[in-house]
């Protein structure tokens, strides 16, 4: 409909743009805002944290996300950049044992933290039980979301063990169990475009020692 210009739109822009088509007809597009002058270069800031058991020291532009620090500065490219807006979960890592979206966190805010990425869970020679279960149960197709899925899955089982409640829990004072519905709810922050969800839940169930 909009012709070739649509090709130039980012995916986010395209989605928002198609949702807003009616509005474009109804009201004229506002005049461009006066261009904001480019930001001056700012000094890099030192930060040091532990990644997969190794102390790392970096000097970073304060805008650098934890995700970009891991991928671009430390070359730990196992952690993936999907949406870069906390919507897809491909960037999931554990910080001090807790899973977060590394794309929505500034690296300089992690001074002294202990970070675990997919590279820190297992190696090709010695897979983490969750990695082995994903292989066994076919918990992926293209594999792009998989490092985030596995980090999240490991953290989810820990959250269940620690008694963190969930939206699908009937009685909030009960201890949660690693049931299929619990794992599906808790994994909702990890999107898989190939649709490997049911196999991911089976892999998690095996590691949890439960039946999916």
């Amino acid at each position: 409909m909009a012709g070739i210009s649509e090709i130039e739109l980012s995916r986010r822009g395209l989605l928002a743009g198609s949702a807003a088509t009616a509005a474009i007809v109804a009201s004229p597009i506002p005049a461009e805002a006066a261009p904001v002058p480019p930001s001056p270069a700012l000094a890099s800031l030192p930060v040091s944290f532990e990644v997969n058991g190794t102390r790392r020291e970096l000097k970073l532009d304060p805008r650098t996300t934890l995700l970009d620090a891991l991928r671009e500065h430390l070359r730990l490219t196992g952690t993936k950049k999907g949406c870069d807006h906390g919507q897809c979960g491909a960037c999931t890592v554990m910080v001090d044992g807790v899973r977060i979206n590394s794309c929505l966190s500034l690296a300089v805010m992690h001074e002294g933290d202990k970070i675990t990425t997919i590279e820190g869970l297992g190696t090709p020679e010695k897979l983490h039980p969750m990695q082995a279960a994903f292989v066994k149960h076919d918990g992926y197709q293209c594999g792009y979301c998989t490092p985030g899925q596995i980090c999240s899955a490991v953290a989810v089982l820990d959250e269940i063990k620690r008694g963190i409640p969930s939206f699908v829990q009937a009685d909030l004072t009960d201890r949660p169990q690693a049931t299929n519905i619990e794992m599906r709810e808790r994994m909702s922050g990890n999107i898989c475009r190939c649709g490997a969800y049911s196999n991911i839940a089976e892999a998690m169930a095996e590691v949890a020692g439960a039946k999916a």
């Binding site: 906390g86 899973r99 409640p165 994994m187």
Partner: peptide
């Protein structure tokens, strides 16, 4: 309050 919080966002976001 627990139910409302757990109805929002994702596990990763709620941790942060």
């Amino acid at each position: 309050l627990t139910r409302a919080i757990m109805a929002g966002a994702s596990g990763q976001l709620r941790n942060k």
